[in-house]
Amino acid sequence: MFWQQLINGLTLGSTYALIALGYTMVYGIIQLINFAHGEIYMFGAFAGLFLVTRFGVNVFVAMLGAMIFCMLLGMLVERIAYRPLRGRSSRLSALISAIGVSIFLSTLMVLIRGPQTDRYPDTIEISSFSLGPVQVSSLQVIILLVAALLMLGLQVFIHKTKMGKAMRACSEDLDASSLMGVNVNRVISFTFALGSALAAAGGVMVGLYYNAVWPYMGLMAGLKAFAAAVLGGIGSIPGAMLGGLCSGVLEIFGVAYLASSYRDAIAFGILIVVLLVRPQGILGKPISKKV
C-alpha cells in the first residue's frame, strides 16, 4: 500500500512540479505571482486534446505542439497584461491584472467549446505491470520519465546557456543586469515562454492520466502548484521541483490514509503547517530585513 501510494503520489507530484516551475521562475525574476499560469496549463491540456482529436497525431507530438502553443500564449499574456504595467505602477496592479487574465482565459475556453468535461481518446495502449507489490501503469512511467527529462533539461538550460545565465542574473538584480547589457524584457518574455511550455506538458499529461479536461481545471491545479512552489521556497527552481513532488505525495497519502473528501484541505493544510515552521519554504533563503 505504501509503495503503491508513493508511486501514485510521485506521478501527481511531478505534474505539480512542472506547473510550479512556471510560478517560481516568473516570481524569481519579477516578483509577480502569475495567477494566469493555471489557465495556461488548461490551454495546454486543450491544445493537446485538439491536436490528438483533430489531426490524430501521436500523444508526444501533441504535447510538443501544446508546449509551443503555450509558449506563444504565455509570451502574449506577458506582453499585453504585465509589461505595460511594469515600472509604472505598483506590483499589486500586475497581480490584479493576472487575476483578470486568469478569469478571461477560462471564460474564453468556455466560450470556445462549452463548460463540459472532455476526455482524451485512447491513443496509447496503457498496460500495467507489477513491480514487487506495486502496480505501475505504463502511463505513470511515461509521466515520470517525461517530467524528469523536462526538469533535467531545464536545469541544463539554466546553467549551461547564455539565456540561462541571463535569467539567473536577472533573478538576482534586474537593474544591474540591464546595466550589463542584458535585454531584461526579452529575458522576462523568455521566462514566461519556458514556464508556459512546462505547464502545457503538465496539462497534456494530467489530461491523459485523469482522462478529463475542462475549462476550470487550471484553477485548483494552479493553486496547488502555487502552494507547492511556496512550499519549496518561491523563487527557487529546485525548490519548485521538490515542493511539487512533496505536495503530490502528501496529498495522495492523505487521501489514502485519512479521507479522500479532505483531499484539498490536506494539500493546503500541509502548506500552512510547513510555512509556520519554515516561512521561507524548504529550499528558500530566509529574508532578513535591513533595519
Partner: peptide
Amino acid sequence: RLFRKMSVLDNVKVGMHAVTRAGFWGT
C-alpha cells in the same frame, strides 16, 4: 551589486554575452 549566487567567472561573462548578442533565436 554583484550576482552573488553566480561564480566570479560567470559574473564577468554576463556582460560579455550581452555584447555578443544572445537573443531568443541565438539561444
